[in-house]
């Protein structure tokens, strides 16, 4: 099953443990995570379900291309990593 891991920066704000989930796309995998941890959704996605401006999602080391619908494919061995883009001051 694909694994999903989150930056430690996010884990300081809300419950965001590593997960193994079922899914063939990033959207399906993250939806499976959100079913386990509902509060996490609003930290990663905006009100329309797109990836937040300053959040980046990697699949096997490559940033996803579809930040609106999260349709990028994953395979059973994929590692999804969610991190924060650098910003602020």
């Amino acid at each position: 099953m694909p694994t999903v891991q989150f930056t430690a920066n996010l884990a300081r704000q809300t419950n965001a443990p590593p997960c193994e989930v079922m899914g063939g796309t990033v959207r399906e995998c993250l939806d499976a995570v959100f079913a386990l941890h509902p509060a996490l959704r609003g930290y990663l996605l905006d009100d329309q379900g797109a990836v937040r401006k300053h959040v980046v999602v990697f699949v096997d080391g490559t940033a996803i291309s579809d930040r609106m619908r999260l349709s990028d494919a994953v395979n059973p061995a994929s590692e999804i990593f969610v991190m924060q883009a650098l910003s602020g001051g």
């Binding site: 996010l10 809300t14 609003g42 930290y43 009100d47 329309q48 379900g49 924060q84 910003s87």
Partner: peptide
Amino acid sequence: HGHYGGKLHASGDDGSTWTEIAVPVYPQG
């Protein structure tokens, strides 16, 4: 949060402990 958006928290003990509550969400679609 700069990365994770706006949230709301409530405290019943003057800020010693906090609980995250719901945040307004705009209509979808």
